[in-house]
Design a binder for these strands. Sequence first.
RNA 1: GCCCGAGUGGCGGAAUGGCAGACGCGACGGACUCAAAAUCCGUUAUUCGAAAGGAUGUGUGGGUUCAAGUCCCACCUCGGGCACCA
Length: 954
Amino acid sequence: MSDTASPSVPGSANFPPFRYSARLAADIESRWQDKWDADGTYEAPNPAGPLADPAKVAGREKLFVLDMFPYPSGAGLHVGHPLGYIGTDVYARFNRMKGFNVLHALGYDSFGLPAEQHAITTGIHPRVNTESNIANMRRQLRRLGLGHDPRRSISTTDENFYKWTQWIFLQIHGAWYDTAQGKARRIEELVTEFESGARPTPDGRAWSALTAGERHDIVDSYRLAYLSDAPVNWCPGLGTILANEEVTAEGRSDIGNYPVFKRNMKQWMMRITAYSDRLIDDLERLDWPEPIKMMQRNWIGRSEGARVTFGSPAGGIEVFTTRPDTLFGATFLVLSPEHPLVDALTTADARAAVAAYQAEAAAKADNERQDDSKKKTGVFTGSTATNPVTGGEVPIYIADYVLMGYGTGAIMAVPSGDQRDFEFARAYNLPIKATAMPTNAWFDQQKIAPSSDCSTWPCAFTGDGEYIDSANDSLSLNGLTSISDAKTRMNEWLESHGHGQPTITYRLRDWLFSRQRYWGEPFPIVYDADGRAHAVPQQSLPVLLPELADFKPTALDPEDAVSDPIPPLARVKEWTTVTLDLGNGPQEYRREVNVMPQWAGSCWYEMRYLDPTNTDTFIDPEVEKYWMGPRSAGHTGGADLYVGGVEHAVLHLLYSRFWHKVLFDLGHVSSEEPFHRLYNQGYIQAYAFRDARGQTVPAAEVVENDGAFTWNNETVSREYGKMGKSLKNIVTPDEMYDEFGADTFRLYEMAMGPLDASRPWNTRDVIGMQRFLQRLWRNVVNEDTGELVVTNDAAPEALLRHLHRTIAGVESDMVGLRFNTVIAKLIEFNNALTQHVNSAGSTPRSLIEPVVQMLSPLCPHLAEELWARLGHNTTVTYVPFPVADPALLVEDTIEVPVQVNGKVRGRITIAPGADEAAHLEAAMAIDNVAVALEGKTIVKNVVIPGRTVNIVVK
RNA sequence: GCCCGAGUGGCGGAAUGGCAGACGCGACGGACUCAAAAUCCGUUAUUCGAAAGGAUGUGUGGGUUCAAGUCCCACCUCGGGCACCA
């Protein structure tokens, strides 16, 4: 480009010296960015603590605007990344002009697997890598002109940050969930209950009669952060275990797509299940997109049912069912192959078959079990159990379609009413007994004659029907038609006869919280000589991550399901062993060598923005209350707006809600939820192109001709999807800055479509936004001389009205985050203004100043520059947003469409307040309407004054 | 299989049940220019018509209504979530 002599290039001979070009934009932008930094323009005052400035806080409403913070990967940003950041920036800037004290900041989620995986592939220490990545992202984002308070930026890898991550871990570790009060309480209060005898010990002995070790173990079993030796998701490819949320439906790792195996390991868990109900119920009080709420509800998976105990030779077998009302139809039991009673139930005859089946099931990964979903397999244990309502003996099977991890790991099979049980019963010739009479419609559909004899049925009947054959001496459901009535009666009977009770089961599992990696927060935990865990005293925080030359985990074969992981920290002898005085004199302890998962820092980072430099506490309560406290009774509190992608629906967004609730219960925060309003921005997608061999070719070099695409004269095929290095379709913000400038880039991203919709990137379209800014610029500055073309001349009435209509529309669209229509309205007005300027030769100040103000949230640099050129010497950032004059919103005349039988035949121009008769009279006067009415009879006249006239004829 | 969300010009997208296609891109025509680029002005859903004007038109088929892109029912396609969860 630079070698052409074209006058269209800035700096060339004929190019207007003061045209708003990329070069001029770059100059304007860097000048204002420096000034904002120097002036601290976006610093938000706190009511208390180190960043306090009470005078500036007084008399202003607050607004906490938040983005999902990025993890600083080495690839840098592409144009898709800043979409949400620009959106929040526009919203934040708009609200600053509306008088709010706006807090907007951005930090970095710099611990975790992605950073560490990247470090391993490059061989550079994650800290070095992370810091240079952060520096690069900061540079790219600064160039965008985001109005962040730079004092409040944090990195989760900073010692001063993760000190408090560890502190919060200790709060959770130091708490237990009191189900009676429905909240977490301090562990000391639990000990008090044990000491006083108010709470009995597990085996009934007096608390004082227990050894110190026994007491320690009992208390540990109550903690919200606890050690568990249970089946975990082991991913040898990553060298670590993973949370359920990090494993895909295919049984592979979310990151890297490595196989994941179930195996037992001793690991830290977070008792998130204690909060299942509150996590579901409080969704009602959040302003979140319904799909996200749905995903969280599904993930927690609350289902109401009953536990029913069946007698057996090995004792009571407890099953969970959502349909206790079908108990009369339970004709066999199925246990998970891992169920603890299987051994005791297996008879000598069945032993070999059972053992073989168990071994086969154990060898399968979860996903393989699910792959065989069509075929039902299982083995008879040789024993039978007693159905508590019928007293009949039912055979006990094991089958791998029953999962140990859900409910009780045992089910009662009702083949007449459950398709899986039906298939199993047919496969193993087990009895099928109907407890509900199917409808005639169902029989018709199955093409069989109505009969309660299930032998003729081709499948289970899962609908509602009248209860039959459901009675014993003390209970009858026969004749009932309501499932809920039948459930209630059955539950009452079960409870009064001691055979079971209503219960609620959740799909949600406790959160597996340790990782066998290096790049994470060390646990503030040490072990004594007996292997019991102790909290590191608060004054010893942070527990620093030791600098390791070799930070790589021991390399393992991704398919190796049996080798034990060796966390990198275990290799640092001088770090793992520590002498501490935990109350009984200096002793030697062994440090926990696992680290916390990626999600730990993101569970609370938003609060540290509020009080980033506080060294006494993670956040001053007064500061928390100001920015995040409930706005009214029943309000959850939390950030006022949280914008991010949908991908964190059940990971970050669930974990952080859980931590926040624990902190709330313990009295550390006044808000019940971290994020009151959530908004999911869409993704910027891109086209990728492949040649005949299927190789991607550089998208920027592809030429379109009449719908066909060629690259180097070779036909290529187009596909639509993500932007990615391997797809050779990355467009970077830096390219946009060079070609158009940051303001044009920001404007384009906001104009492409609604913020919550995904849309394809088209560099070709960006020019339209640049043209708009150029036209706007010309309405203020003469391109050739640089002189102001603005005068104090009176504005034409029509344009003034148009301006105020625009102000009103822009205002409501800004509030609703509809920035695309904000931009359309501004362009529309500016186009009208341009026509006037072209004929009048100058721009009325009263018309252009409000436009500059309205533009400033979207294009802050250009707006500052124009505002300054218009003669103002303060930043436009805090200038009040224009207010529409209601008098100017009322039009002298309006145009109303006239329809005949719903078809528009003409328009009338009429005063806004005109009555129905006036509308009708004007409508009838239109020639075209008269023609349409000719020879017809008027049946009805519909007149909505100011809206429409519809004449209905026959 | 179950549960969400979405289908509007050549493209991105606008439309409190009341003039479908705002705004932008592209395309076409014009001005400026020796010429081109850039910029500016105009046209641009399809179709019949010289024009005035008419007909058709928001995935498909029905329905409600004076009036439907918008509300209801069924279906099709695409995107997403969950999935042997008892």
